[in-house]
Design a protein around this nucleic acid. Structure first.
Lengths: 246, 246
DNA sequence: CGTTGTTTTGACTTTATTCAAGCATGGTGG
DNA sequence: CCACCATGCTTGAATAAAGTCAAAACAACG
């Protein structure tokens, strides 16, 4: 059944978009951005818990978060989810599917969110014609690799408090258009998601937040977190690291 | 000072190489492989502990491990290393540097190792002419992303025994040319490296190995590990996962 | 052999998990 | 508008797991 109106797709105007500097068009000539625009449509807005694509689904398009936030998850053999990343406006989703034309993770929205959609096959054809776009795409993929490395570094931090502290700091620095890190954060994920992601139990996360609040390092009110003392938080994040084994 | 003989560089014959099916040339037409070959030279062989490139060094070339094994590490603010990956013949190193033309991790050899070297700028130029090569490169980058995701999933496994067990299983499956996983592994990294990577202390790793040995799941003799009971090992790897929090 | 560096083991301490109960918050329907 | 329930978050006490420090066993190398 063809549904004409259920998925309204508007052509997007990247050149007029406020986040284009974080996004795919960055560094492209206006002429090339124009050609890219013709591929881009807006995907259906989603509310919390809905998924943009599922694990195992064939790769059809890449998506850019334009509003809201997402988590990407992989299901292990027992059907338990592991969160492998959180994603914010400007972030490109779906590149994991390029390797085998199949998504290896699912993308689920954490709150009301919107997206741009770029059919992958047409994007690939366009890269054949626009070397700058190809370069941009490769750099974006590489950036994801380095982000994952940072992540692994954070998770390697042995103590729980260090993991949480360094994650908070990286949140505060996220989308580094301006130099200074944000002081107040509005977390979009539940404690459960955070615990899953950081490899701890919900209760441990909660206790850590409470402790940091009592000590005056943070002010935690539900999902609103304010960083009161950056120095002590960084110190705490570094605490993780004891003497290396060698 | 120009050293003529210290870094002998031979042009490599990818078409004659035994691991070309794991490597960059995979899927390319013989004609294109020929053109790729002209870029490839062999890098200086290295012994354990030597580094192929350092963190912060400008990206000049990509490398493929042809013999031996490597670790990639990032140094955190306090100068402590976190191992972000182990790499084996056929693995491509250096893609992390594409994002900002600077390596964000260092590559250090774990044993006597050899490499092919591909100047990145020339490779990029060649991709402008060979769409298939571009696709292959994108797929390889994507594959690294999915590997990192797997890794994150493994590390998310809360208990130490689960992390070690699932890492061993992934080792045994590594380079899945043939279907059946390897039974006996010759680890090339020290217990210290393994502990660093898995986010545990050396002593914990050692105790886990001992326990698995006593229980007859593994036979551990130094760095030689034989998997005696795949089923129980998998069960152990899954054990990690308790009920998801929600 | 003795020296060096790595790995294993042991006793003890710290940290995180578990299970269970209590608080909020936000929404629904009387 | 307020009692009511559902959900997500916090807290507490007991248990299990991992980390620390110190010493012994083992390999590798000259």
């Amino acid at each position: 059944m063809v549904k004409f109106f259920s998925v309204p797709e508007f052509e997007q105007r990247c050149s007029a978009c406020s986040i284009s500097e974080l996004c795919l068009p960055r560094g492209l000539r206006p002429m090339d951005v124009r050609r890219l625009e013709t591929l881009v449509s807006s995907a259906r807005p989603m509310s919390a818990g809905q998924s943009l694509f599922a694990q195992g689904e064939p790769l059809r398009a890449l998506y850019v978060v334009s509003r809201g936030s997402m988590k990407t998850t992989v299901l292990d053999g027992n059907g338990l989810e592991q969160i492998v990343g959180f994603h914010y406006p400007g972030d490109l989703l779906g590149l994991d599917g390029v390797a085998n034309d199949v998504h290896v993770c699912a993308a689920v929205s954490l709150e009301a969110s919107e997206f741009c959609r770029i059919p992958f096959e047409r994007l690939e054809q366009l890269t054949d014609q626009l070397p700058m776009l190809r370069r941009r795409l490769m750099r974006l993929m590489s950036r994801q690799l380095t982000l994952d490395d940072d992540l692994l570094m954070g998770l390697g931090s042995k103590s729980g408090e260090a993991r949480l502290a360094s994650w908070l700091l990286s949140c505060s620095r996220h989308g580094d258009r301006q130099d200074q890190p944000r002081r107040s954060l509005q977390l979009s994920m539940s404690r459960g998601d955070l615990a899953n992601f950081l490899g701890m139990r919900i209760e441990t996360i909660s206790r850590l937040f409470s402790r940091m609040d009592h000590l005056g390092v943070l002010r935690v009110r539900q999902r609103a977190v304010e960083i009161l003392d950056f120095d002590r938080l960084s110190e705490w994040a570094g605490r993780a690291a004891r003497v290396a084994d060698r």
